[in-house]
């Protein structure tokens, strides 16, 4: 059963109030994307224009120079692009599966070890062993070294998402539904997949989106676990490395002298970095409407219970 919106019949807001809502939301929504448009414009701005009038929404002259440089990076750029996609896709699927599987029993009030596993996950949000001990375990015990696994496994689980997902279960799945299914002789896995998951689709879409973003934006794991096999480096790390090189050379220019001057010259210019930012942001802005549609599709189903 699907209910159609709008539902203005339920004593809706006056038109005046709605206009105020529109204005507030529109201003904020515009503020959210204008900086990105600005960076896109800068990436197409010629160096001369920047020197003359600074960054501007209406540059004096345009140039594709920054993109020429980006494309000149050739193989390295596309490979890291591919890596980012691969890591994001595998990571998102795996982490959503783990998250749903872990949080569903925690929502089941009749699960005997519910409390234990609740705390088991929650405690790690607050206490940790610190960076170095974690890396040592990952490298020596789990063999996370110079492989894709090293860029995925450390991010597979998030206690925060467990709590969010559990809340989704709590707010949208009535216990009676599960009890009824159990009485009908449905196994636990089939109850979860056939009955519960369709109801919490919005929750899953939300968690999937959050995880996809986390994987897409991750660069620190590459710094920690990639030493020799740079072929599997993601795009975000490529950009971060340029940033870190620039920082370091700025700090140590005096000691490195001419070496630094030479190295700095090989660094990309500000417009080139802006162009890379465009490259990083573009795929997510394309992927998001898909998620968004999914969220909305899930919502209409989720709005009806029983």
């Amino acid at each position: 059963m699907v209910m159609k919106k709008p539902k203005a019949n339920l004593n809706g807001f006056s038109t005046g109030t709605e206009i105020v809502f529109h204005v507030i939301l529109a201003v904020f929504a515009l503020a959210c994307i204008i900086p990105f448009l600005f960076v896109v414009i800068i990436s197409f701005t010629s160096e001369e224009s920047i020197r003359a009038i600074g960054y501007s929404f209406v540059p004096q002259s345009w140039s594709l120079q920054a993109y020429d440089y980006v494309f000149a990076m050739g193989g390295a750029l596309w490979r890291s692009y591919f890596n980012s996609f691969l890591i994001t896709v595998i990571g998102t699927v795996a982490s959503v599966a783990i998250c749903v599987l872990y949080s569903y029993p925690l929502f089941r009030k009749d699960f005997k070890y519910r409390n234990f596993f609740n705390y088991f996950s929650f405690i790690t949000m607050i206490f940790g062993g610190g960076l170095i001990p974690t890396v040592v375990i990952c490298k020596t015990v789990l063999g996370l070294n110079d492989n894709y696994a090293a860029l995925i496994i450390p991010m597979l689980f998030s206690p925060f998402n467990i709590i969010v997902m559990r809340t989704f279960f709590q707010t949208s799945v009535p216990m009676e539904l599960i009890e009824a299914a159990t009485i009908d002789g449905s196994g636990e896995y089939s109850t979860l997949t056939r009955i519960v998951l369709p109801i919490v689709k919005p929750g899953i879409a939300t968690i999937a989106l959050l995880n996809a973003l986390a994987f897409w934006n991750e660069w620190f794991l590459s710094l920690l676990y990639l030493n020799k096999n740079m072929d599997i480096m993601p795009l975000q790390y490529l950009l971060m490395r340029m940033q870190r090189n620039a920082d370091f050379l700025a700090k140590n220019a005096s000691i490195l002298g001419a070496d630094a001057a030479k190295a700095v010259r090989e660094l990309p210019s500000q417009t080139l970095k802006m162009a890379l930012v465009v490259f990083i942001v573009l795929p997510i802005s394309c992927a998001y409407p898909f998620f968004q549609r999914y969220v909305v599709a899930g919502l209409t189903i989720g709005s009806v219970k029983g």
């Binding site: 160096e47 020197r51 620039a246 920082d247 050379l249 700025a250 001057a261 700095v264 010259r265 500000q270």
Partner: peptide, 10 residues
């Protein structure tokens, strides 16, 4: 510090 490199090189 962070913007000095670009500026100086340019």
């Amino acid at each position: 510090a962070e913007t000095s490199n670009d500026t100086r090189t340019a």
